[in-house]
Amino acid sequence: MAGFKETLKDAVRQMSFRTSLDKLKKKGVQNVNVLGVDRIIALIEAAVHRSLKSRMVGIDRDAVAESTKAEFLRLLRSNEDLQREKSQIEQARERAEEEIDLMRRELGEKRSLLRVKLEQDAMELVTRYSGENQAIAMKVAEICRSFAESGDASVSSVEERLMELVMDVVSGEREEAEVARKALQDREVGNLQRRIKKLNDTLVTTEQRLQQASTMKQFDRGISSIYREVQGLDGSDSHAGKKRELMVDLFKANLKLQKRGKGA
C-alpha cells in the first residue's frame, strides 16, 4: 500500500510542473492556494473508492481496488521500461554521431598533413632543379674555356666533348628518375594513405551503425493481428456445439487454476 502511494505521488509529481513565486508574480498572481501531495493522493483514493462503491454494489470492491492498483503499477513499470529503452537507443545514436564527428576531424587532419607533405616535396624538387641547371651551365662554361685555352676548336672535338657532357647529364638524370620513382613509395606518404584508408573504412562502418540505431529508434511496433475484435466460436461451424462445451470445460479448468494460484 505504501509503495502504491509513493508511486502515485511520483506520478502526480511527474505530471505537475515547477514554477517560482517570482514568475507567478510576473503573471499577476498575488495569492496561491496550496494543496499537499498527500492530500491529493487521499482525494484520488477517496474518489476511486466512492466511484467503486456507487457502481459496483455487491462486488468485492477491495479486491477490485487492489487489482486496479496492481495493474496501475504494472503499466507504470512497463512505461518506465519503454522510456529506458528509448533513452538507451538515443544514447547509442549520440555515441555513434560523436564517433563519426571525431573520425571526420581525424580524416581532415590527415588529409591536410598529406597536402603539406606533397607541397614540401614539390618545393624541394624546384630547388633541386635550379641547382642542377647551374651545374650543367658550369660544365658547359668549363668546356668552352678549355677550347679557348687549347686553341683546338675543330668540329669533331667540339662534337665529342659536347656529346660526353650530354650523355653525362642524361645518365645522371636517368638515375635520379629511377630514385624518384622509388621515392613515390615514400614511407610517410604510404603510412598516411593507409591511415586514411583505415579511417574511411571505420567511417563507413560507423555510419552503418548510426543508420541501424536510427532505424531502431523507430521501435519495432510489431505486426498487426488480422482481427480487430475478439472472435469467439463461429456459429456455423459443424462442431460448434461440441466445441462450445470444450471451451467451457477448458475455461473452468483455467479459472480453477487461476483461483488456486491467487489463493496460494
Binding site: A11, L75, S224, S225, Y227, R228, E229
Partner: peptide, 14 residues
C-alpha cells in the same frame, strides 16, 4: 492515456 497506459484499441492478437 493520462497515466502512460497504452490504449489497447488497435485489435486482438491471438
Amino acid at each position: 492515456g493520462e497515466a502512460g497506459e497504452v490504449k489497447k484499441d488497435h485489435g486482438v492478437l491471438y
